[in-house]
Design a protein around this nucleic acid. Sequence first.
DNA 1: TTGTAGGCGTTATCAT
DNA 2: ATGATAACGCCTACAA
Lengths: 342, 342
Amino acid sequence: MNDVAEAAGVSIATVSAFLNGTSNVSPQSTQRIETAIRETGYKRNAIARSLKMGTTHTVGLTIPHITNPFFTQIVSVIQQAFDRAGYAVMLFCTDEHLHNQDEQIRLLLDRMVDGLLVARVGDDATFKQLVDGARVPVVLIDRLCQGVDVDSVTLDNRQAVFEAISYLISLGHRRIGYISGIVDISTIHDRGEGYRQALQAAGLSLDPELMQLGDFHEGDGYRAAMRLLMLPDRPTAIFSANNPMVVGAMKAMRDLGLKCPDDISVACFDDFAWADVFEPQMTTVAQPVEAIGEQAAQLLLERLQGRAPSEPRRLVLKGRLMVRNSCAPMTPGRGTAWPRSA
Amino acid sequence: MNDVAEAAGVSIATVSAFLNGTSNVSPQSTQRIETAIRETGYKRNAIARSLKMGTTHTVGLTIPHITNPFFTQIVSVIQQAFDRAGYAVMLFCTDEHLHNQDEQIRLLLDRMVDGLLVARVGDDATFKQLVDGARVPVVLIDRLCQGVDVDSVTLDNRQAVFEAISYLISLGHRRIGYISGIVDISTIHDRGEGYRQALQAAGLSLDPELMQLGDFHEGDGYRAAMRLLMLPDRPTAIFSANNPMVVGAMKAMRDLGLKCPDDISVACFDDFAWADVFEPQMTTVAQPVEAIGEQAAQLLLERLQGRAPSEPRRLVLKGRLMVRNSCAPMTPGRGTAWPRSA
DNA sequence: TTGTAGGCGTTATCAT
DNA sequence: ATGATAACGCCTACAA
């Protein structure tokens, strides 16, 4: 900017005024400054600007996995929303790893992001401490945190799973396997609750063997499903509480020569683009990803612009069961013998 | 930092020295500073630091689509690599839109990122100008740019498609439809070239009607495939030059009552996690996504650390044909009548 | 309309 | 070992 001022024969204050349109600059100066900028190839330094202004026009976003289509879609929407508002988004993936999240949020805060959107990970206490230390607004996405009272956008996970499991029950299934991530977060907990309540509502007893936990990855989905399928009295249906794990479950079934939905009915959380083009067409619980991303962005934007109520807003959206053909009605005698093909 | 210095009864210079371990600080001062930091809840301001140091320890990454698993996997690897090296990654999605890319890169540059990784978009000239204006190292991913001589990691797209099409030909297919994005980038061009050369090598003539272009999205894949399938002499096989479009193509076939691979064989570029669990199990060209991301990160990291040769390094990796069951041998009489089911 | 000067939070140089 | 002080590039009173 100094160079520009010099080249244009004016002071840097004038250049700044011109750049920001903050006060009137004479046509001649304008002219000269414009050419000077072009000639020097000047680029405004946003870092210096941020230092002075105390705002970076950047928000931080942390998610557990970037390869999970669910988060990917949300990221996409959020990015677009902030783009429109003139904000940049700094994205980090924690890979469901507490240590990463800690460090990443610290990093984000160090960099003076104006706000934080987080699909969190790890135990409540640590996270609470982190949020309390932040001096910027935080919006929770997908996963809540006990004791942290900030804006949030989540799904009614309990009810969504309740509906899915009830559907399976209505098809006649009695032994329904459930695979899920094991991390102690609200989402996981609520989904498990939905499973239990659906069984209970149907007067079915809960067999602990039928709930198999792992991490959130395909590999653990495979192992969890394997344990289920090797049970002497194996389930006739499997519900996966997340998307990556169902892929592993399908692979386990394939390796065991079990067909879906003929031998086992399968359904899972989170819809995906090609759910209705490949066979079996997966029955899923679709989350309103666009709404989630859009609302989360709005919540934060409003706070950043100071036009938000002081008390936290907690949005809870509803999931939608997408019935396709991966679940078949239960027929008598099914699932009792193993291997069935023998 | 002022507060800390005051609370510890030392000067800010000492605090800074302590923080950076740049010079020896007496044990007593160390003690006092440590407690002062704890008490004041001090957080180092990375913005001010960047301003002074001229480095942000942040790199920019722009990709066309975040919902495309191919890019998603690369992003994941790149993030991890820079994480290990102590860098943050700022991710932007251009949505295959030139205007966005321009603005995003400008933004990134304004923010003084130390380097840029870009899977580019738009015409060569504009992009060249952008890169020339950058005063930081740039690494091209997936897509090259004429006239821009910087480090790059790409795939031998021509050869990969050549192999895939040749495989289809070896199965007996003669009329092979090709759907692709239309944007004028190296990747698209090379893939088209692979298609043409494979036909030529087999002594087959090129029917322009068989090459249908659209954007990169599912919707256009649907429309492109529809045009192909409505041809009086419709193809017996379809190759999609990208992943999202093949989903659309499959939907088109479904809507027309055409089965894969019985009626039409299908293959596409870019492998995906569940390619071998759902039916049809898609035959794909797998890119070495991990290697691409890892290498790109290394290339940039080396430059940032000043241990890179001055001349640009151009890495070209090889794709791998993953043969599954979405392509069937051609049988006489197939594909000639329409609708076949009639 | 334009210029001068102080300061945002760091780091680095140079005295002490 | 420590402290004063000058940048880094920008914005903003305030003065001219």
